[in-house]
Design a protein around this nucleic acid. Structure first.
Length: 901
RNA sequence: AGGCGCGUAGCUCAGUGGGAGAGCACUACCUUGACACGGUAGGGGUCGGCGGUUCAAUCCCGCCCGCGCCUACCA
């Protein structure tokens, strides 16, 4: 039997083929009525405007690994996909497009037409990211794909708003909010990004009213806002200013007089002059201080962040920058500018467009968060939901405990319109599930709906249950809520995770998920955030094309250690591409050597247990190693340590299976003899090789779904196997195949083989030239193993005659020698033994042993050691000393022999 | 200001209260009948610094230095 498999694995066609197959077979689809234990994850919905970036690739990979693994473990798995309408982001994209193609603004089109265009855009491009997700092999239940503006989802959003309003948890108020003059909308605190920028601190003198010779000097970073000052605050205990409290100052550049107040909260006596101008209309602290002292709130900026009519005429229409220059110049001219100092300050910028955000007085809708946060705190404390890594609990708690009310109205068009209607006659606000035709209070018909839409995150907060049919009482909801795991990036822990907790608990009375698994951010090789501006973006689809989706997935899994940012290096992906190729070739080798193999027969016997098989050392060893690997991989996955799982599989397949077992299997597989003995050996080897590979494929499938499916489909399978590896049972460790004796024996054999190879390398013995090997052993175990398996030394170390001796004098003549796991390995190399080669190697070994003897002796010489240390540690340490001493003795004997030969 | 995290081989990173690891890179040899996207052998580290706890610290604790992130109302 021959195989036509190419020498190099080509992922391209393989991936497309199997993905199509999986979808066609319906393997991704969850059945809510199925009795198996549910395991559910809702995919964090990417923006409809999005295209796949590394962050998506990471989240998809991690979730798909969990999902495929649990599916193979026979859970009833739901992984639900969808996209988010992403209010501001989408509106910006479409606005820009319309501006470019038609040179029109959204206002030129009007609300209705603009929304029609956005929908049009969504229909055309909105499916892109879902499409791209398929390339990574994501086993999402596409039949359940959701969009946050689907009619059903929109009903859920409206229901949520109305219920919160009815419970008094949503209210409308005139407050200071963050305003983006570019996006022309209110923002929540979270949508403002603060960055330190270099600015100045201006010291301005305010003359005391009625006493112009006395001047109160204030310090400010925003001199232009002085036009809206309505007070000056000093610390009530400050001897310098206490006498001024209650008096007034004449506000320069205006004709207003404003009070001097004492405020211990706002004022830090150490900062600046200890006197602060108070501008309740343009600063959050000042707003609070203003409330404490009943100061007037004056807004001197319009919504485009230009000076408005509340300021002196000469400044009207200026931008904040222009106004700043003008105000500073005028103050200086008036002799009121005392000094200017350089000063760094945190400037708030719009998350979406980077424009400087202005605190602005405005009438907006708010969610009262206190009552919602309380249970969201309690449930974490009670362990109903836990964070992985656990350290995020603290971050979450801190934010939740200091939460402020959430401004949820946005002055945008794209989004869920706020279901509130205002009565022209009586001013009553009607908030309703169905569009009302008349005022709920006075019955008048003249109603106008609120123009604003809701923050996108308001609708996202409902994702874990709105996607499952809420507010309906659906089967999906019953089966899959609470979801099992919420896997997402730590950057949206407040934006999203915290809000889902609040909303899930409020509406469902149960936590939305049992585990919050937070992954790190993917950054470039240098550790910098990927951005189009920097040009350091790595496109996951490009990587998939070059190296295969499996290699990309494996890289992400292997690097996704909990806690640290992931510096993605393409060289790493290439390394795992090589790993895929290694597996491919191990599979080729296996398939090339299965002639005459009867799968059912072997697998039946294998299931019965090892006593039904005629296994030799390498077989027993690899099967034992396999069981350990399975257990370790399973444990790692249970603990969400995907990198550990990946590493374990990598080592098992490459180092143990390929480097050792496959090499040792060759003699049995290539044997031509048709006697019973060699035929049995061949069958056993075929069986162990095929079974180990098949099991390893199942172990690896969650991480590398495509390659494992391709290989698995080609491997012989017992009758009645499922149609796909993805619906087989995940590998389970079988205790019966754990074989400590075999592992110890192999260890010895491996060290001896390596010792011979080392000698060959040192003397540059060409591979074609066999060498004789003498192995000097010390006990029966060593003797039995090494004389029983000399054939492997012959094959793997290219030896010719292998002699195993116990005791007696060293063989005559010059030998190259090495110490391996307690046995002495001697290779006579007539005429070429060079002490200059030999001595350094042996001396180096001897030095290492000497250092160890010293270290261990030191430990043992401490009288407290034996008393305090656990008994097994003491025993172990004594053994180590004996080993090291024996090693040293042997090495010095070898060195002496060499010197005197 | 507070919180969190990081500092281990040239690079990127695992890891553990008791004998320092991987991948890549590097050196030497090898077209051996799965694989050169390969094989074999090898070089390379005071585990950031100082102190403490312990029989024993790279690991636990404290301080310091350096780096990063998050939260925060110092004008």
């Amino acid at each position: 039997m021959t195989t036509q498999l190419p020498k190099t694995y080509a992922p391209g066609q393989v991936e497309a083929k199997w993905y199509r197959f999986w979808v066609e077979q319906g393997f991704f689809h969850a059945d809510a009525a199925h009795p198996k234990t549910p395991f559910s994850i809702v995919l964090p919905p990417p923006n409809v405007t999005g295209s796949l970036h590394m962050g998506h690739a990471l989240t998809l990979t991690i979730q798909d690994i969990l999902v495929r693994w649990r599916r193979m473990e026979a859970y009833n798995v739901l992984w639900l996909p969808g996209t988010d309408h992403a209010g501001i982001a989408t509106q910006i994209v479409v606005e820009r497009e319309i501006l470019r193609s038609e040179n029109k603004s959204r206002h030129d089109l009007g609300r209705e037409e603009f929304l029609r265009r956005v929908w049009q855009w969504k229909e055309k491009h909105g499916g892109r990211i879902s499409e791209q997700s398929r390339a990574l092999g994501a086993s999402l239940d596409w039949e359940r794909e959701r969009f946050t503006m689907d009619p059903a989802y929109s009903r859920a959003v409206r229901e949520a708003f109305v219920r919160l309003y009815e419970e008094g948890l949503i209210y409308r108020a005139r407050r200071l909010i963050n305003w983006c003059p570019r996006c022309y909308t209110a923002l929540s605190d979270l949508e403002v990004e603060h960055q330190d920028e270099q600015g100045s601190l201006w010291y301005i003198a305010y003359p005391v009213a009625g006493d112009p010779s006395t001047r109160l000097v204030v310090a400010t970073t925003r001199p232009e806002t002085m036009l809206g000052d309505t007070g000056v605050a000093v610390h009530p205990d400050d001897e310098r200013y206490r006498h001024l409290i209650g008096k007034k100052v004449a506000l320069p550049l205006t004709d207003r007089e404003i009070p001097i107040v004492g405020d211990p909260i706002l004022v830090d006596r150490e900062f600046g002059t200890g006197a602060v101008k108070v501008t309740p209309g343009h600063d959050f602290n000042d707003f609070e201080a203003g409330l404490r002292h009943n100061l007037e709130q004056i807004s001197v900026l319009d919504l485009h962040a230009r000076i408005n009519e509340n300021a002196p005429a000469k400044y009207r229409g200026m931008t904040t920058d222009e106004a700043r220059q003008a105000v500073v110049a005028d103050l200086e001219a008036a002799g009121l500018l005392v000094k200017v100092e350089p000063h760094t300050l945190a400037v708030g910028r719009c998350q979406r467009c980077d424009t400087v955000v202005e605190p602005m007085l405005s009438l907006q809708w708010f969610v009262k968060t206190g009552p919602l946060a309380a249970p969201a705190i309690e449930m974490i404390e009670a362990g109903k939901t836990r964070f992985v890594p656990e350290s995020w609990t603290k971050t979450y708690m801190h934010w939740m405990r200091n939460i402020k009310d959430w401004c949820v109205s946005r002055q945008l068009w794209w989004g869920h319109r706020i279901p509130a209607w205002y009565c022209k006659d009586c001013g009553h606000i009607t908030v309703a599930r169905q569009d009302p035709s008349r005022c709920a209070k006075c019955g008048a018909g003249a109603l106008t709906q609120d123009e604003d839409v809701l923050d996108t995150w308001f609708s996202s907060a409902l994702w874990p249950f709105a996607t499952l049919g809420w507010p309906g009482d659906t089967r999906d909801l019953k089966t899959f809520y609470p979801t099992t795991v919420m896997e997402t990036g730590y950057d949206i822990i407040f934006f999203w995770v915290a809000r889902m907790m609040m909303m899930g608990l409020f509406f469902m009375k149960k936590v939305p998920f049992r585990v919050v698994f937070l992954h790190a951010m993917v950054v470039d090789e240098k550790g910098e955030k990927m951005s189009k501006v920097k040009g350091n973006v790595i496109d996951p689809l490009d990587l998939c094309n070059r190296y295969g989706a499996d290699a990309v997935r494996f890289t992400l899994a292997a690097m996704a250690a909990q806690g640290r940012n992931i510096k993605l290096a393409p060289a790493r992906v290439e390394g795992y591409r090589n790993f895929a190729n290694k597996i491919w070739n191990a599979s080729r080798f296996t398939l090339m050597n299965l002639a005459g193999y009867e799968c059912d027969r072997f697998v039946d016997a294998y299931r019965e247990g090892p006593e039904n098989l005629d296994l030799r050392l390498p077989d027993r060893w690899i099967l034992s190693r396999l069981q350990h690997s399975i257990k370790a991989v399973d444990d790692a996955l249970e603990d969400y340590k995907l990198n550990e799982a990946a590493q374990l599989i990598y080592r098992f397949i490459w180092t143990e299976l390929c480097d050792w077992y496959v090499e040792m299997a060759k003699s049995a597989l290539y044997a031509h003899g048709d006697d019973g003995e060699s035929a049995t050996r061949k069958r056993m080897t075929q069986g162990v090789l095929a079974t180990t590979l098949e099991t390893a494929m199942r172990l690896l499938h969650p991480i590398m779904p495509f390659l494992t499916e391709e290989v698995w489909q080609q491997l012989p399978r017992p009758a009645g196997s499922p149609a796909s590896i993805m619906i087989t049972a995940f590998a389970r460790a079988d205790q019966r195949y754990i074989d400590d004796d075999a592992e110890r024996a192999m260890e010895l054999l491996q060290r001896v083989i390596e010792a011979v190879r080392g000698i060959r390398a040192d003397y540059n013995v060409s591979p074609g030239q066999p060498v004789d090997v003498t192995i000097q052993v010390e006990d029966d175990f060593q003797k039995t193993i090494l004389s029983g398996y000399t054939a492997y030394v012959v094959e793997l170390a290219k030896a010719q005659k292998v002699t195993v001796r116990r005791g007696g004098a060293a063989p005559a003549g010059l030998h190259a020698s090495a110490l391996a796991a307690g046995v002495e390995v001697l290779v006579p190399l007539a005429g070429v033994i060079d002490p200059a080669v030999e001595l350094p190697r042996l001396e180096k070994e001897a030095r290492k042993s000497a250092l160890e003897v010293e270290a261990v002796q030191k430990r043992l010489s401490n009288p407290n050691f034996e008393v305090r240390a656990p008994a097994e540690v003491v025993t172990e340490t004594r053994e180590r000393l004996a080993d090291a001493q024996a090693r040293m003795a042997k090495l010095s004997a070898m060195i002496e022999r060499l010197k005197h030969a």
